[in-house]
Amino acid sequence: MASYIAKRILVIPFLLFVFSILIFVLIQAPPGDFMTTYSAILAGSGSSLDAEQLDAMRVSYGLDQPLHIQYVRWIEKLLRGDMGLSLLYMLPNKQLIAERLGPTVALALFSFILSWLIAIPSGIYSATHKNSFGDYFFMVLNYIGVAIPNFFLALLLMWFFYVKFGWNLVGLFSPEFEAAPWSWAKFLDMLKHLWLPGIILALGGSARLTRVMRANLLDEMGKPYMVTGRAKGMSEWSLVMKYPVRLAINPLVSTIGNYIPQLFSGSLIVASVMNLQNIGPLLLQALSMQDMYLSGSILLVYCLLAILGTILSDLLLAWVDPRIRLE
């Protein structure tokens, strides 16, 4: 087991190296660079830079160098723990990302836990009450959850809460905490704003999870160990909870790895709609402005999270399933 974990961890740097090349090439693929976008924006607002000034800035940012030189410079800095400077904000990328990583992870975790809390019980109910009214009720709810795009749901719910209760749930913090340093009060304020996007993201995820849970459980409930359990004299409820539920959850655990990056990218649209200052909108902005070092750094963080998520789900699976642990 220890060697298995070590192997998984040792492979991370190699994977990140491969991903870094891919990310860099993809970001550089669209025509133009940051200076092109920058001058276009300036031109839009009336002022302008002449070609000489632009070229001077290109040289100072190193944008005049060929692709591979730029890459080597970037990776060299990354290895020293420096993510470079955002051309757009004129701030270190590390600082920009670090500020927003907390709320991003908090939102992802919250909606992840919530989606499991919704999916497992409703999946169990649907499977044990197959084809009953409740089963169909959850099924309809799930299809709605899958079918409604989450940004639309976000708009609907924001409107609903504003009209009905007068709550303004836009943004991640109340105005008074916007610029304040982190404190307990600021954290509580964030939670007050986080629950709605959390629920919106959880609904979409739980809809799929419920269907998977129901199908897995129905599958498990047909297994011969159910006959054994009944013949022992177990009550139906404790039998279902102890054996098939336990086994039906195993495949779900293996999906955690895929689910984590999905949560981050899923939160991008919702976060943009709800004006949440997490990583999603930052990435969107960086990409559209061709702020390549910022977007590169964010994407690399995403990749790292995806890899860690996969390792985490593998470890969890080994923990819950002895067939994997003892092999």
């Binding site: 011969p224 054996y243 195993n250 399933d321």
Partner: peptide, 15 residues
């Protein structure tokens, strides 16, 4: 008491 038909699957594999 019952001795069930399929010994392979009569026990839960994770208990």
């Amino acid at each position: 008491a019952l001795i069930p038909q399929e010994p392979m699957a009569a026990f839960s594999p994770v208990h």
